[in-house]
């Protein structure tokens, strides 16, 4: 999955599960807090509940996010937490992405 340290990573090296923008935002927000409920992540990312649920399900299936469902009175509350695997995936993604960006010529980075 990973390239040698000396070689620039290929696009195929990127974790596609994390690379998708909505899932990247979800994992990033969960990386900076200990845990949060769906509403908090929904508010921070601006995703609809359906969209968020769909992405969280994929992240949960991959073992990146732990989901805990509880009830507060009669209202359901779904707490989300980034797992160690999820944190490692995000760190790896950031490292590879940064290395890829660093291999671009300067004028390409500046968008000229």
């Amino acid at each position: 999955m990973t390239s040698d340290a000396g070689e620039p990573p290929k696009a195929s090296d990127l974790d596609r599960l994390v690379h998708e923008p909505a899932r990247l935002m979800i994992t990033a927000y969960l990386a900076v807090v200990e845990r949060a409920d769906m509403l908090f992540v929904q508010r921070q990312t601006g995703l609809t509940l359906g969209n968020l649920s769909s992405h969280v399900s994929k992240l949960e299936a991959a073992g990146y996010v732990a989901v805990e469902k509880t009830f507060v009175g009669k209202r359901p509350r779904t707490m989300l937490r980034l797992t160690e695997l999820g944190r490692a995936a995000l760190d790896g993604y950031r490292t590879r992405m940064q290395r890829m960006l660093n291999t671009l010529p300067d004028d390409a980075k500046e968008g000229t």
Binding site: V32, V33, E34, R35, A36, D37, M38, L39, F40, V41, Q42, R43, R77, M79
Partner: peptide, 10 residues
């Protein structure tokens, strides 16, 4: 109820 519940890190 408006912005959700969050617990920040150490």
């Amino acid at each position: 109820p408006r912005i959700g519940l969050v617990k920040f890190g150490p």
